[in-house]
Amino acid sequence: MSPSEQSIPHGHVLRYNLRERLTHWVAAAAYIYLLSTGLAFWSPWLFWLAAALGGAQVSRMLHPWAGLLFFASVWNMYVMWARQMKYTDDDRKWWKAVKYYSTNQDDKMPPAGRYNAGQKFLFWGFFWSSLLLLLSGIIMWSPQYFAWHSLIAMRISVLIHASAALFTMGLFMIHLYMGLFAERGAFGSVIRGDVSIAFAKRYHPAWYKEIVGESSSPRK
């Protein structure tokens, strides 16, 4: 059964196919590992995280490898989603109305497509941060493998790595908040793949219109 042929319960539509869902969870698992081990090295008060994850040496050894896996999955997202994440005029309107979005007055929001402007920001934020994390991380990794290392590059990289990581943490917190708490019904989309039609119409009306086609009566 190809991902697009999976059975969708009545009153639901497919939002994420198998490849999208798998990629999401590889990225999530790698990110949570990177976050936990990274935070352990960020603050002495969180160093116990590394101990809990198998020891500080092991955490240090695996963090960069998990980073490579994380970047690979982010890259895969880029391949799958970059085109859908293009900023449009509607997104500009969405940002202007963001205060209604954040106070649950969704009826006052301009209609969003498959991704609203906030989700697009999340995507690009993660994409560019991951690139920075990868490049700076590789430089920070280098002394383990090369007798040669550039002190100045390492000094700058540590700053970039920590700043980019912090930025993604902000994105990550909001992402979890939206997906788990605020937009009830969203979580199933990355597990089973589908969302209810009601969910689609409420949060992504333009996308819903697109997938059912103009033919279906747009009930409001």
Binding site: N104, Q105, D106, E183, R184, G185, A198, Y203
Partner: peptide, 14 residues
């Protein structure tokens, strides 16, 4: 939450 239960989703936002 933006909407509590599945039924609420179908309700008009706001």
């Amino acid at each position: 939450p933006k909407a509590r239960e599945e039924e609420d989703l179908a309700a008009k936002p706001g």
